[in-house]
Design a protein around this nucleic acid. Structure first.
Lengths: 176, 176
DNA sequence: CTACTCAGTTGATCTATTGAACTCACATTG
DNA sequence: CAATGTGAGTTCAATAGATCAACTGAGTAG
């Protein structure tokens, strides 16, 4: 089979997915952000098979998202830690979690909540405009071609649709 | 084998991943947000195999993220469209794309850029606090247990680490 | 009448995921 | 000091998913 690699795609989403888009990786990163740091903790918490966990951690380390730290020499004991790239990814995972709180219907309300230290409030992670700090929706965004944009594997046609175009189309109706 | 289902996990991230966390799904949603809407357009643009595309689209439709619309009766022609859940997910994908722009090192700069209609600026999608609109980082967030939180598959230990705790630990160093 | 498009199915092949058992070094306990 | 336990994986058989490529079938264009 060989799962198709997204690495060659001229698309930052595809490249992100190549690094953290597989089954388990985001949950491993969630755990590293929330507390579990050691191999066995991760394995027990997630219920992931140990060989897969080993493979994933190695991949994440190669991609510079986690580091493997030896915190004890005798016996050798390791701890996995998020790098800056990993830390930067946490808010994105929080946003996806917030989406799940809304659309994946948890049985008894959200399993965890976030409080913002600087303002003190319990909040919902929201994707905002870096310029005006307003929440963005797909309707309020124009997509523009960037310097790295060109047709290629994974983006054969998208370019034709882009160009000062309203994201999510002109003839859109979002009825369910 | 059966790939482990995340659906039963008491974690909104896991439930989100159950719906959109598999190989290709996020790219399919990207395409639906950017332009391609028809089966063949998606297949050609992504280079995904046609049977997988059919399976994914059906799954996304079952989960209420896309709808299949017949826009022509003779011959029968269909178009796939994001539902409100799908539209709500787009900003999250944008945030992940922005992460990729930063950490997945595109060769020639970002393939696409976003402009915010309401303020007119080209911007970086940023995850912010819904209360104070400041950008959140994992260091500025406390994690609190929510009503739906309890140990279970996929979250056996995380609960022990949570409780008015600083996300990403107390003894964290984020050196690379 | 033939070729082409859209929207998928079907089937053979191959690989990633799973679950469980195994290794190996060190530590702890009775 | 023998027996058990813990951390951090590795090895292995079985199987569900992914891939590629060819096929179907309705309709339309030339």
């Amino acid at each position: 089979m060989r799962q198709t690699s997204f690495a060659a795609m001229q698309c930052s989403l595809a490249r992100s997915l190549e690094m953290v888009g597989d089954w388990w990786s985001p949950l491993i990163l969630r755990d590293l952000a929330l507390g579990p740091r050691r191999f066995d903790e991760l394995a027990v918490d997630l219920g992931i098979s140990r060989n897969l966990l080993a493979t994933r951690l190695e991949g994440l380390a190669v991609d510079g998202i986690v580091t493997r730290l030896r915190y004890l020499d005798h016996p050798p004991r390791y701890r996995y830690q998020l790098t800056q790239a990993g830390v930067d990814l946490v808010p994105v995972l929080m946003a996806l979690t917030a989406w799940g709180d809304r659309w994946a219907t948890p049985d008894d309300g959200p399993p965890i909540r976030y409080r913002h230290r600087t303002c003190g409030h319990v909040f919902t992670p929201t994707v905002c405009c870096s310029s005006c700090a307003e929440a963005v929706s797909s309707e309020s965004v124009h997509v523009l071609p960037g310097p790295g944009g060109r047709p290629g594997p994974g983006t054969m046609l998208t370019g034709e649709f882009i160009g000062a175009r309203l994201m999510n189309g002109d003839e859109v109706d979002t009825k369910r």
